[in-house]
């Protein structure tokens, strides 16, 4: 057996460990249903803010948490408490991806990712600063 083969075996073992450690520390993309069935599991839920419900962030009282309602892809709504500062213009977000766990129908999120509408592209003349509507 060549030395190179031994090295390759080691790297293969490394790859196996990396994969195993990823699977044990990963969050599955799921909905609120799965999250409430398995409260111990850390899952990732994506969805949209529920229109009409307010986003509650009072940084004067606690700058490190905020609350809102989110509907997952299947339409199930849940109250979310997120322990972080609220991203700017969170209310305008198009899609929210949460990482966390569910307990008693409340989703506790430790991490969130916000996708904003057309961050790089604006293709609507009426939203531009000198829109036709404003000037007429």
């Amino acid at each position: 057996m060549k030395k190179t083969h031994i090295a390759l075996l080691f790297l293969l073992a490394g790859a196996f460990v990396a994969l195993a450690s990823m699977l044990s520390r990963s969050a599955e993309h799921a909905g609120f249903d799965l999250a409430s069935e398995q409260p111990d599991r850390i899952v990732r839920v994506s969805g949209t803010l529920v229109p009409g419900k307010t986003v509650d962030y009072q940084p004067e009282i606690d700058p490190n948490s905020f609350r809102f309602w989110m509907a997952d892809k299947s339409g199930r709504q849940a109250r979310v408490i997120c322990y972080d500062d609220m991203p700017y213009d969170f209310e305008k977000s198009e899609e929210v991806v949460l990482t966390g766990q569910m307990k008693d129908d409340v989703f506790f999120a430790t991490d969130l990712l916000v996708k904003c509408p057309s961050k790089y592209v604006e293709d609507d003349l009426t939203k531009s600063s000198t829109s036709a509507a404003e000037m007429q």
Partner: peptide
């Protein structure tokens, strides 16, 4: 510090100050 009574064994980043 602030007491997060309703939270459980999650790790919180209290990283912002007023």
């Amino acid at each position: 510090g602030i007491d997060y009574g309703e939270a459980f064994d999650l790790q919180f980043k209290q990283e912002n100050i007023l």
